[in-house]
Amino acid sequence: MKVAIISVSNKGHELALKLKEKLDNDSTIIKCDLYHKNVKKYLKIAFFEYDAVIAIMASGILIRSIAPFLESKVTDPAILNVDDNGNFVISTLSGHLGGANALTNKVADLIDAVPVITTSTDVNKKLGIDVLAKDLYLSIDNTKEILYFNKAILEGKKITFLLNPDGNYNYLRNYLSENTLEMDVSIECLSEINTDEIHVCVNEHNIVLKEKKVVVGIGCRRGKECRKIFEGMKKSIEDLNIDISRINMLSSVEIKKDEEGILELSEKLDIPVNFVELDKLKLFTSNDIQKSEFVKSKFGIYGVCEPSALITAGFDSKLVYKKTSYDGVTISVAVSK
């Protein structure tokens, strides 16, 4: 998640500096930039260029400033509102699909504030269908149905998940067993369903959830054993709350194609690995990747795990876990659009 923090007062700016320091240490925060004063100018930039905006200011200033840009819960960024004293963190916009509710809880915990969340499913301790899609990196074919489904969940109606019997949906089953709360859920198998899709039904209404490609990028020192690579990967996906069965592919650079630790890991997990050509990595550019001069001096590229994950995930993919080091292993995670 790319985050912009915008403050107005000097006191708010001090809070922004402290918050940025904490968020910079979070591997799920790809970058965090600070903006101070000139709210209308910077909010317009942040609204369209970041995944989330943390506005440390009065709610009236925030609401009037973002009002002209509001479009849809599907495309609007997460907006959080924080008071100058850091007493409250309010999830203001895009609580579910945009991730504002989850970020609100994270920020509130970091600055010891009270999180304020008002979405009906959350306050009634129910799981929204859009929350499920967000958490499991699934796209929703008909977002207009979200409201109907979440209302049905609140009313206690039975929600049926239709799955292909040949697909690996352990991640969904595990997620539902841990998060359904009081939802009335049933799971049925239907061979007509594509293996990368999940059909969700209630009464005559239907939503199709489609898997985005989740790719784990791996960089490692020569001869790093499988166990050590897996330990780093496991820690990363735990940070993201991703079940290992949700990983679609591993990736690294072609000079690692004979790296026994990576090959063994791919075989043990039954997850294919893509070794990206060196020339593709040399040509690849992104403002979101971390550049290593050491890797550049040795291989002519600025990095391995981040760019290889993004290339493997496909055009317009995004990092959801930035390069993080684990004892000679670097891990990142990218997700397709």
Rank of each mutant, 00 (worst) to 15 (best):
Y137K: 11
Y137S: 12
L138E: 10
S139D: 12
I140G: 11
N142D: 15
T143F: 10
K144D: 13
E145K: 14
Y148A: 07
N150H: 00
A152G: 08
I153N: 12
I153K: 05
I153M: 08
G156R: 09
I159T: 07
T160Y: 02
F161M: 01
F161N: 01
L163W: 05
N164V: 02
P165Y: 04
G167F: 13
N168V: 08
Y169H: 10
Y171F: 14
R173Y: 02
S177R: 15
S177W: 05
S177D: 15
E178K: 15
E178S: 13
N179K: 14
D184W: 00
D184G: 00
D184H: 05
V185N: 01
V185A: 04
V185P: 05
S186C: 03
E188C: 01
S191P: 06
S191N: 11
E192T: 11
I193K: 09
N194A: 13
N194C: 05
I198Y: 04
I198S: 04
C201H: 03
N203G: 01
I207T: 00
I207K: 01
I207M: 05
V208P: 00
L209P: 00
K210V: 05
K212P: 03
K212C: 06
K212Y: 06
K212T: 13
K213Q: 09
V214A: 11
G217H: 10
G217A: 06
G217I: 11
G219Q: 08
G219K: 11
C220K: 04
C220V: 09
R221Q: 10
R222N: 12
G223A: 12
G223H: 05
